[in-house]
Design a protein around this nucleic acid. Structure first.
Lengths: 148, 148
DNA sequence: ATTAGTTGTAACTATAATGATTACAACAGA
DNA sequence: TCTGTTGTAATCATTATAGTTACAACTAAT
């Protein structure tokens, strides 16, 4: 099991928009950087738009950031692309036997514990802004360019 | 996307073994409490056995705990049932364009960040032992019984 | 206005994972 | 030897993912 790559694609897209604001960022162009099909990009971009993270111009084409980089957290992207239903990272078996003492009670006990685990994960995502990610990315790019 | 219920089923099974040590815990009996098919139980039980968490007697039937409750963490169960490939909770798109500055560098930057998020989640699982879970469960059962 | 280039979607495909189920050989113990 | 159980293979329905083709709707520039 893995969390859909829509998430990493979403982050990739927004990073592109941040780093190449001068480009005409069409789905075709973005798809070239992500390494996938333009339709995949349009779909994710549609979700980012719906979440208020990106602007997309139909017709003339091209996308831009709808918010400052410091005001977009990885969690915002994660939620936008809808990779994990809220509070349901873990699938808990749904028909435990209520006549059995364990079966009758394990669900709620587990639910609380697993929610904490999920919350810890999302907390890390919430703490990272795209500003930080893009800064690290820019640094990495600079490093590689200097190596030539 | 959700993490397979094999995990919650595994926890359910071990809790049963802990709370009903006197029972003849056959896959049939366990399946009755979990609310699924005996074969599902045998498969998960096989994984728990392989991980050294449970003993299973072929032929005569019945399973028992292979370790003390305080020496089994939720993370042990999580790993045993193989629900998430190690270090790969997040699927990062795999063909970013190396000719694009963002495409060439985003993978490693993201990988580190997402690993931290995953690690936080697993850290919570590692911190909870089955002893604690079973104690809470027993308390819950007691509470309900007293309500009658 | 027309045109060229783009977005937004629907429809379809292939692939994989999940959970359930049937079937049966191998095994243990009475 | 017989009974009941485990271990495992094979099959199925369902769901999600990622990719692809196709095309109507739209925008801006000519």
């Amino acid at each position: 099991m893995q969390i859909s790559s829509r998430f990493s694609i979403g982050v990739h897209i927004l990073s592109l928009l941040a780093i190449n604001p001068a480009e005409h960022n069409t789905s075709e162009w973005i798809a070239g950087s992500v390494g996938t099909n333009p339709v995949i990009i349009r779909r994710v971009l549609g979700q980012l738009k719906k979440a208020g993270l990106a602007n997309v111009r139909a017709g003339s084409g091209g996308a831009t950031l709808a918010r400052e980089l410091e005001e977009i957290s990885l969690l915002d992207v994660y939620r936008a692309v809808d990779v994990v239903e809220e509070g349901n990272l873990f699938h808990i078996h749904n028909h435990p036997n209520p006549a059995c003492e364990v079966g009758a009670n394990i669900e709620q006990v587990l639910r609380l514990l697993l929610f904490k685990a999920q919350d810890a994960m999302e907390g890390v995502l919430a703490a990272v802004t795209l500003r930080e990610l893009v800064d690290v990315l820019a640094l990495e790019i600079k490093k590689k360019n200097a190596a030539h």
